[in-house]
Amino acid sequence: MSNIKQTLKFFSSLSITAYPSHEYGGCRAGELPEELSPSEAVYYMDEILAAIEKEKLPSEGDRGLMVYYYEDQALSEKIYSLHPTVEEWNGKLWGVMVVEVYGELIEAETAKLLDFAVGQMSDGWGEGFEQRPIKTNDGEIFVSFWNSEDFFIKPEQELKQGTEQNFNEQTMGGM
């Protein structure tokens, strides 16, 4: 096993629901929560990052969510850490799983890692996170790392290359 650690990022769509507050506090009767677009969600990035930080448990240490991985001992040793976060890219806010790994992951290892990460997003870490309100100047928001209609999780370069190709096709096509 290589002792050179590299960082990988896996991007996913987010689902963010806003409950607006008013001068007098609380929601108005009959007022429905609003689904925020990924570009609107960028505005709340600092509050979301602070909430993610508060969610970290001392028992997780540097390894983050990998302390809960028991399925494959060899893979658990190869993947040093797994940390959820959010990042802005292309004017939109994304869920990101930051992974520190020794050496390279083969396809089967990546599949196991992503299966575990999605489980943490939907049941483990993420289930608690999405139920806790994040206070903002505009009210409260709830952030789900997996509960969007078009959920996906993919490697950073796959996401970014795909968008660049689409962008190039759109700009080149009109010439």
Rank of each mutant, 00 (worst) to 15 (best):
I134R: 04
F116A: 08
D150H: 14
W125E: 05
F151W: 12
V143E: 09
N147G: 15
A117V: 15
E127R: 07
T110A: 11
Q157C: 10
P133K: 06
I134D: 05
I141M: 06
A117N: 07
E149I: 08
G128R: 13
W125M: 08
E149M: 06
Q157I: 03
W146E: 09
K154A: 15
W125I: 09
I153A: 06
D123Y: 06
F142R: 06
R132H: 12
W125D: 02
A111P: 04
I141S: 04
W146T: 00
D138K: 08
D115E: 14
D123C: 13
T110R: 13
E127I: 04
K112R: 15
G124F: 00
I153Q: 08
G139I: 08
G128N: 13
W125T: 09
E156H: 12
S144Q: 10
K135Y: 02
A111H: 14
F142L: 15
I153M: 15
E149W: 05
E127G: 02
F152M: 11
T136V: 13
L114W: 03
F152P: 11
W125V: 06
P133T: 02
D150K: 13
V118P: 02
V118K: 00
W125R: 08
N137D: 15
K112M: 14
S148V: 03
E156I: 04
F152W: 15
N137I: 03
G126T: 07
G139W: 03
P155V: 00
M121W: 02
G139P: 07
F152R: 06
E130I: 05
F152N: 03
K135P: 07
F152G: 12
Q157D: 12
A111F: 13
P133C: 05
K112T: 10
F116W: 04
L114C: 06
A111N: 15
S122A: 14
A111D: 14
E130A: 10
M121K: 05
G126A: 05
G119F: 02
W146Y: 13
G119V: 09
E156F: 12
M121V: 02
L114S: 02
S148A: 11
Q120G: 10
D138Q: 11
F145L: 13
E140I: 03
D123H: 12
F129V: 10
G124V: 02
S144L: 13
W146R: 00
I134G: 08
